[in-house]
């Protein structure tokens, strides 16, 4: 899938991606409700969602949890020497407690989120990372959330 992924999407796909990011009804047959709004049948909604997921355009249909309401998490930054970046990043990604893990253009070049059941678990993961890599971690937990997540508005060109 490349930059042209969008080109393969028809109007119903776009409607489906754009307008169902937040209020999936909690009813027995949610896809049937979507189907009615899209003017297609329930089976086709499911087929399209499966196809979009297989193509990697949607990661899932489900909940987005507010951070730190369930479990604890923190953003972590590390300054990794360039020649070690690939191997350190791969090892960090292999940890089940790590979700997003990005290289960013800065002296602090590796950024990831660690999520754990509780604070003790979180601290042990961070200690393990420092021990394994011999590098310091910058722990940047969320203190306040100003963002109301209404999904992401896509602009079709």
């Amino acid at each position: 899938m490349t930059a042209t992924a969008q080109d393969t999407l028809d109007a119903i796909d776009r409607h489906l991606l754009d307008d169902f990011q937040q209020d999936l009804p909690v009813v027995e047959r949610p896809w049937a409700v979507m189907a009615e709004q899209l003017g297609i049948d329930e089976e086709e909604v499911l087929a399209r969602l499966r196809r979009l997921q297989a193509a990697g355009l949607i990661s899932r249909v489900g909940p987005v949890f507010r951070p730190n309401r369930i479990g604890v998490s923190t953003l972590v930054a590390m300054a990794v020497p360039e020649q070690r970046l690939d191997s350190v990043a791969a090892w960090i990604s292999s940890l089940p407690e790590v979700n997003h893990n990005y290289e960013r253009e800065h002296d602090f070049n590796l950024w990831f989120v660690v999520t754990a059941d509780d604070q003790a678990h979180l601290c042990s993961v961070l200690a393990r990372i420092e021990r394994h890599t011999g590098l310091a971690v910058l722990e940047l937990p969320m203190l306040e959330d100003y963002f109301i997540d209404l999904g992401f508005r896509l602009q079709w060109t």
Binding site: V26, A55, I58, P63, R69, G151, F152, L154
Partner: peptide, 24 residues
Amino acid sequence: RVRALQGDGSIKRLGVVVRHRRLG
């Protein structure tokens, strides 16, 4: 239970989660 999680704000939203990068 899902409605309760929505009600107390634990679930911010429920629906399609898109991958920005793959969508251009």
